[in-house]
């Protein structure tokens, strides 16, 4: 008798000694299903499913990360630089899948207990440990791109700005039409009330304006107001601001002809960053850029001083 035949005989005996699938095994299955369903409902209720900003192919500030169960593969790519990358990307996963498919033909003996199959047991545990280690490494690897938090309302306004084709007439950041005014030159300094009225009906605030009435919905008006406000340099800074810069920043940063070059030159910072971003950065650089060696100024300066300084910096556009 081969071991196949012996096995079938023995299994037949074990089966007849066993209990019916229903209700004994099914009861365990049902309990586990209940547990899983409870956990899923809890996760869905408390965390829901996140949604980030809409996809933006032009964004160079994003830190792409795969879902956590693909993270080990993502991390493995870092171990094989240059031409060797295809080993981690293709050869290893391909070999693993082929191994899994062929496993029953590779390991054909009757031994089933883990201690009777030490090689496969170690191979399995080793692979698990490797995947676990890579996943951990991937999870703690620093995000090198700065995380820029966007104000969701202003961001909705920005999307609306593009879907309404405002750029046909208006310029922002030097791009757009010339029929209407350039919006990053002063429009953001208008009051919210004025902007709101303007979007409701341009004739109310600017009689004779060529801008059409857009029949905007209430929340669309709010989004656009927030977006236009975000283009503002933040309004005026006080006479204190240049002094604050001299005392706190000039030791590392250059502004015009003054200051040192330890940190980046800030002479044109206003063209790249808005006031809110600068403010967040001054308060705690590590939140936005973990590799920065700049100290945070929250607590060092008062909130008012930081606001003043941020407005001052946002106004630095090289003119």
């Amino acid at each position: 008798m081969t071991w196949h035949e012996k096995y079938l005989e023995r299994y037949k005996k074990l089966k007849s000694e066993g209990k019916p699938f229903f209700p004994y095994a099914v009861f365990k299955d049902t309990l586990v299903a209940l547990l899983i369903f409870g956990v899923l409902c809890g996760l869905a209720y408390y965390f829901g499913a996140e949604i980030e900003d809409p996809a933006d192919p032009t964004d160079s500030n994003y830190n792409p990360r795969p879902e956590w169960y693909f993270l080990f593969l993502f991390q493995a790519l870092k171990l094989f630089p240059g031409n060797l990358e295809s080993i981690a990307a293709i050869v290893l996963p391909g070999a693993a899948v082929a191994f899994l498919f062929l496993l029953p033909f590779i390991d054909r003996g009757p031994e089933r207990h883990i201690f009777d199959r030490p090689f496969l047991t170690f191979l399995g545990l080793g692979t698990l440990a490797g995947i676990g280690y890579l996943t951990y490494q991937g999870a703690v690897s620093p995000l090198t791109n700065p995380i820029i938090e966007k104000d969701p309302v202003a961001f909705a306004g920005q999307r609306l700005y593009s879907s309404l084709n405002c750029a046909y007439c208006h310029k922002i950041g030097g791009r757009g039409g010339t029929i209407g005014p350039e919006l990053d030159k002063g429009a953001g300094d208008e009051s919210e009330e004025w902007l709101e009225k303007h979007f409701r009906d341009p004739q109310l605030t600017s009689p004779g304006s060529a801008m059409p009435k857009l029949n905007l919905l209430e929340d669309e008006i709010q989004s656009l107001v927030a977006y236009i406000k975000s283009l503002s340099s933040g309004g005026g800074f006080t006479e204190e601001a240049p002094k604050l810069f001299q005392e706190n920043c000039a030791a590392c940063h250059k502004l015009g002809q003054e200051g040192s070059e330890v940190g980046p030159d800030l002479s044109l910072i206003g063209t790249a960053r808005d006031k809110n971003y600068i403010r967040k950065y001054v308060e705690d650089p590590s939140k936005i850029n973990p590799s920065s060696s700049m100290p945070g100024y929250k607590g060092q300066l008062t909130d008012l001083q930081i606001e003043d300084l941020s407005r001052y910096l946002a106004a630095q556009k090289g003119n």
Binding site: Y11, E17, P20, F21, F22
Partner: peptide
């Protein structure tokens, strides 16, 4: 499906 016996 359900009344079949399974080894314990």
């Amino acid at each position: 499906l359900f009344a079949r016996h399974v080894p314990e």
